[in-house]
Design a protein around this nucleic acid. Structure first.
Length: 575
RNA sequence: CGGGAUGUGGCUCAGUCUGGCUAGAGCGCUGCGUUCGGGACGCAGAAGUCGGAGGUUCGAAUCCUCUCAUCCCGACCA
C-alpha cells in the first residue's frame, strides 16, 4: 500500500478525550475515530491490526477443532427470558422493541443463541462433543465505557461454546481451549499470564482469565514466583492456619475513642496494632444489610463476600444506612449487638481473641471482645483481599503482584444453560442427559488496545510483527527523484511478493514527518531509502522495538532482508 | 446511577472569575515562493450558530436556569 493514497490521518496533538496510552495512540496514529461514547470506527490501519488478531484467533480455534459460525446480533427476548437472564443481566443488555412490539436485545454474549441452536439439532451422544465459535460484534451498554477500545460498548469478540456428553469430555474441551488460548497469545507476541478467576455473572464452576501484562492494566494478578500459581486478585485465596483453642479473654469493656473513626486513628489512639482491631463493614446485599468483618490491617474482597452470600447485587452501605443500622455515626460500627444484621467474618478472626471493635455508639469502641462469645457470627471464611508477600496457596512462597488486562476468559459452565434451555441428548443407555457446556471468550478488539498498552514508547506504538498492520514501512526520502522512486518501487514489489506486508511512504513530505509517522504507527521494521544510502548502494534499517539502526545492501536485498527480519522476529520471542 | 470536570474553526487551547469594539493563538488545511535526513520558513487565504434552549441586561463566549454531549473516579466486564 502507498501511504500517499492511504487513509491514515495522524495527529500531532493528543485529542483531549483520550486518557490512556492505547487510546491516545490509536487516535493519533489514525487507526480509530470515535462516533459516540464507547463506539468507534476502525480506519484502515486499525482494521488491519484487528483482522490480524482475528485471523490468528481463527486459525487456532480451527486447529483446536472448533467450528466457525456467525450468530445474529439481534436476539429475541423470549430466549433470554427462558434462561432467566432477561431479568438478571441488568442494564448492560441493550433492549428495544421492534415495529411489532416484540421485545428484543442486542447480544452481549451468545449462550442463549448457541444453546438454542444446538438443542434443536443434537439428539444423540454420538453427535457430541461439538464446539462452535464466532468472531462478531458484541454490544454491552456499559455504565461507563472508557479507555477507547479497552472498554467500548461495541466490541469485537471471539466467543466459543462447547457441548459435551460427560464431565471428562467437558474438561477435555476446556483444556483444549485453554491450550489454544495460550498458543494464540504466544503467536501474537504478547506477554501474558493465565490465572484462575472468579466466574462472575456468566456463572459456572471454574474459569481462567488470560491477562496481557501491562503496567496500566486494570486488574491485579497475584502470582507465585516459585510455582505456576496465578490468580486474579478477586479470586486469590488467602492462606490461613486452622483455628485452635482460643485463650478465654476477660469481659468486653467500653473504651472512649472520641472522634477516632478510622482503624489507623483508633490504633494510634489506643496504642495498639491495627491487627488487634476488627473492621466492620456494612453492605447492602440485594436490599438487605449485611456486615463483613476483617482484621484492621486487611482489605475486604467484595467478590468473595458476594459469592459467599450468593448476592446478585452488593454495595457498600451509605452513611445514612450505616447510621440507621448501627445507631451510631460511621466509624463506630461493630459486631456486638448489631440486631437483625447477618455477620460474616474473615477466617483470620477465628484465630485470636480479645479484639477491639466499634461499640455502635458515637466515640466509643469495645475491647476484649470474643467474637464467638459476644457476637453472632454466621461464618468464618476467606473474605479478605490477598496482599503482596502473602504465602502462595500452592507452595507457600511469597506472592507477587502484577498488573494485567483481561483479554480472554474460559469458563466451564456445566449445566447452567443446558438446564435452563433444556438442551439434552440421549446417552449410550438411551437416557436423556443435559449437555455439559463451556464458554470461551477473547476480546479481539481489546487485544489491539492491550497490545499497545504493553508495547509503546515516547514516539508511539511498537507493534509486535503479528499484529502490526504492516510489517514494514518503506520510507522513500526522495519522492521526486526518479531513481529513488524506481528503487523504492522495486523493493516494495519484492517485499510484497515475498509475503512481507509493506507500506510505502511515497508522500511528498519532509523526512522528519515520515520518520515521525512511521514511529507513531508502530511498524516493526523501518526501511529508509535516501540519496546518501542510494549512492552507497544500501538501504537503512531500523528495528522499531529496539531502535537499533543498520543497513542492508541493495544488491541481493531480499535475501539479506529476510535473514535480518528473522532476527527482529526473534527479538519479539516469535518462532 | 453516585461523585468530579469539560464543551470556543478539523486538532490543542487562551479569553469566562471582573459582561463592552471586528472572538484570538499554535497546529492542520488551500495557493505561491524558498526549503528538503527526525514533525521547515515567509507571504497570502479559507474556516467559528463560542454544545443547545430559555432568561437577566442597553449589551452575553462571559451572569442565571434548564438541557445535551464528552471525559475522569466508583460498581460491571472480553
Amino acid at each position: 500500500m502507498r501511504l500517499s493514497r492511504y487513509y491514515a490521518p495522524t495527529l500531532k496533538e493528543t485529542p483531549a478525550e483520550a486518557e490512556v496510552v492505547s487510546h491516545k495512540l490509536l487516535l493519533r496514529a489514525g487507526m480509530i475515530r470515535k462516533l459516540t461514547a464507547g463506539i468507534y470506527t476502525y480506519l484502515p490501519l486499525g482494521l488491519k491490526a484487528l483482522n490480524n488478531v482475528a485471523n490468528i484467533v481463527r486459525e487456532e480455534m480451527d486447529r483446536a477443532g472448533a467450528l466457525e459460525i456467525l450468530m445474529p446480533a439481534v436476539q429475541p427476548a423470549d430466549l433470554w427470558k427462558e434462561s432467566g437472564r432477561w431479568e438478571f443481566y441488568g442494564r448492560e443488555l441493550l433492549r428495544f422493541v421492534d415495529r411489532h412490539d416484540r421485545e428484543s436485545c442486542l447480544g452481549p454474549t451468545h449462550e442463549e443463541v448457541v444453546t438454542d441452536l444446538v438443542r434443536h439439532e443434537i439428539r444423540s451422544y454420538r453427535q457430541l462433543p461439538v464446539n462452535l465459535y464466532q468472531i462478531q460484534m458484541k454490544f454491552r451498554d456499559e455504565i461507563r465505557p472508557r479507555f477507547g477500545l479497552m472498554r467500548g460498548r461495541e466490541f469485537v469478540m471471539k466467543d466459543a461454546y462447547s457441548f459435551d456428553k460427560d464431565d471428562a469430555g467437558a474438561d477435555a474441551s476446556y483444556w483444549a481451549m485453554y491450550k489454544a488460548y495460550a498458543r494464540i497469545f504466544e503467536r501474537l507476541g504478547l506477554k501474558f499470564r493465565a490465572v484462575s478467576a472468579d466466574s462472575g455473572a456468566i456463572g459456572g464452576s471454574f474459569s481462567h482469565e488470560f491477562m496481557v501484562l501491562a503496567a496500566t492494566g486494570e486488574d491485579t494478578i497475584a502470582s507465585c514466583p516459585a510455582c505456576d500459581y496465578g490468580a486474579n486478585l478477586e479470586k486469590a485465596e488467602a492462606v490461613c492456619p486452622p483455628p485452635g483453642q482460643l485463650a478465654p479473654c476477660p469481659a468486653a469493656e467500653t473504651v472512649a475513642t472520641p472522634g477516632k473513626h478510622t482503624v489507623e486513628e483508633v490504633a494510634a489512639f489506643l496504642g495498639v496494632d491495627a491487627k488487634k482491631i476488627v473492621k466492620t463493614l456494612l453492605y447492602v446485599a440485594d436490599g438487605k444489610p449485611v456486615a463483613a468483618l476483617v482484621r484492621g490491617d486487611r482489605a475486604l474482597n467484595e467478590v468473595k463476600l458476594k459469592n459467599l452470600i450468593d448476592a446478585k447485587d452488593l454495595r457498600l452501605a451509605s452513611p445514612e444506612e450505616v447510621v440507621a443500622a448501627t445507631k451510631a455515626p460511621v466509624g463506630f460500627a461493630g459486631p456486638v449487638g448489631l440486631a437483625g444484621i447477618t455477620l460474616y467474618a474473615d477466617q483470620e478472626l477465628a484465630l485470636e481473641n480479645g479484639w477491639i471493635v466499634g461499640a455502635n455508639t458515637a466515640d466509643a469502641h469495645l475491647r476484649q471482645v470474643d467474637l464467638s462469645r459476644d457476637a453472632k457470627v454466621a461464618s468464618f471464611t476467606d473474605l479478605r483481599e490477598v496482599a503482596p508477600g502473602d504465602p502462595c496457596p500452592k507452595c507457600g512462597a511469597a506472592l507477587a503482584f502484577t498488573k494485567g488486562i483481561e483479554v480472554g476468559h474460559v469458563f466451564k459452565l456445566g449445566l447452567k444453560y443446558s438446564k435452563a434451555l433444556n438442551a439434552t441428548f440421549l446417552d449410550e443407555a438411551g437416557k436423556e442427559q443435559f449437555m455439559i457446556m463451556g464458554c470461551y471468550g477473547i476480546g479481539v478488539s481489546r487485544i489491539v488496545a492491550a497490545c499497545i498498552e504493553q508495547n509503546n514508547d515516547e514516539a508511539g506504538i511498537v507493534f509486535p510483527p503479528p499484529i502490526a498492520p504492516f510489517e514494514v514501512a518503506l520510507i522513500n526520502l526522495g519522492p521526486k527523484d526518479e531513481a529513488a522512486v524506481a528503487k523504492a518501487d522495486e523493493l516494495y514489489d519484492a517485499l510484497n511478493k515475498a509475503g512481507v506486508e509493506t507500506l510505502l511512504d511515497d508522500r511528498d513530505e519532509r523526512p522528519g514527518v515520515k520518520f515521525k509517522d512511521a514511529d507513531l504507527m508502530g511498524f516493526p521494521i523501518q526501511l529508509t531509502l535516501g540519496g546518501k544510502g542510494l549512492a552507497r548502494g544500501i538501504v537503512e534499517t531500523k528495528d522499531r522495538r529496539t531502535g537499533e539502526k543498520g543497513e542492508l545492501p541493495l544488491e541481493g536485498f531480499l535475501e539479506a532482508f529476510m535473514a535480518w527480519r528473522e532476527n527482529v522476529r526473534q527479538g519479539w520471542g516469535l518462532e
